[in-house]
């Protein structure tokens, strides 16, 4: 391995390089603004005291947050979403974690095919998973319901768990398992006391990620959710089409807050950089 050379030291900056540098800085700044600006605007207008949206807000009031918590229909839909997301999380962990084990530690032929199949729901647009579930359900006389929503969202979310757990498993040092075996621990004991604790951060991140993906999902939910007990994203989807009062900004800000909580959990557990891999 050669020693890395200090970048750009001693190189002449040509005029074109100077211009390019400024273009790069400008586009980067614009992209950052584009990434976070809209969310900040939504948070700002959620504190609007009047009944229509304005930026900057004409004052400061929490009346729209109070309106959210006074709205039984919205509260019900939040409860539906929480319940469903927890169920999706449970299913995905139960089937996804062992699958990740087989995928990483497996010694059988066709491991690559297994990998591809486990991650294949990612290739499917949410809408296709939603419509396919709806049609299949209708074919076997099974209506759109909470159960159908949970089952279809779990298909959608499974790859997230598999990917995050697989990444962590691949990083684990197999020597630790061997050491445990050499010290006399059985396979089960090694799993429970050596492998599982090392895996805990990944499980934590995978749970948080799956929860928020299920909680926010609209493309699958629109097709498979119960019409009488709409989850929050579906409720919000109809609200956005017909209403633009700051109450939507207030719900949105709450969702943005939730996404920050999830981000903190993931950052603490495995680090944000991992999410990009």
């Amino acid at each position: 391995m050669t020693r890395p050379i200090k970048a750009s030291a001693g190189h002449v900056m040509l005029p074109i390089d100077r211009i390019a540098r400024w273009v790069l800085i400008a586009v980067t700044a614009f992209s950052i603004l584009l990434l976070i600006g809209p969310s900040l605007i939504v948070i700002a207008i959620s504190f609007e005291p009047r009944a229509y949206i304005a930026f900057p807000p004409s004052g400061f009031s929490t009346r729209w947050y109070q309106a959210v918590f006074a709205n039984q229909q919205l509260l019900d839909s939040i409860l539906v979403s929480v319940r469903i997301s927890l169920a999706v999380m449970a299913i995905c962990l139960m089937i996804g974690v062992p699958a990740a084990f087989a995928s990483i530690r497996g010694t059988f032929r066709g491991r690559a095919a297994l990998n591809a199949f486990l991650l294949s729901p990612q290739m499917m647009p949410g809408m296709v998973i939603g419509i396919a579930s709806l049609f299949f359900g209708a074919y076997i006389a099974f209506r759109a319901s909470d159960l159908m929503l949970i089952l279809s969202l779990s298909v959608f979310c499974l790859p997230f768990v598999v990917r995050i757990v697989m990444a962590r498993l691949a990083d684990l040092d197999p020597l630790l398992d061997e050491a445990s075996a050499n010290l006399g621990a059985g396979k089960l004991e090694t799993f429970a006391r050596v492998t599982l604790p090392q895996l805990a951060p990944a499980l934590c991140a995978a749970s948080a990620f799956t929860f928020i993906e299920a909680f926010d999902n609209v493309t699958v939910s629109l097709f498979t959710s119960d019409v009488r007990a709409r989850p929050l994203p579906v409720e919000l989807y109809y609200l956005v089409q017909f209403d633009s009062s700051p109450i939507i900004a207030a719900i949105s800000s709450l969702e943005i807050g939730l996404s920050f909580v999830v981000m903190l959990i993931i950052a603490k557990a495995v680090g944000l950089e991992r999410l990009g891999r």
């Binding site: 990434l35 809209p38 605007i41 949206i53 956005v240 949105s252 943005i256 999830v262 981000m263």
Partner: peptide, 18 residues
């Protein structure tokens, strides 16, 4: 990462506002 974890619906709503 934060936009990635924020609901696409919320971000679409932001564009309606803008």
């Amino acid at each position: 990462i934060s936009p990635l974890l924020t609901s696409a619906l919320v971000r679409t709503y932001a564009w309606i506002v803008i």
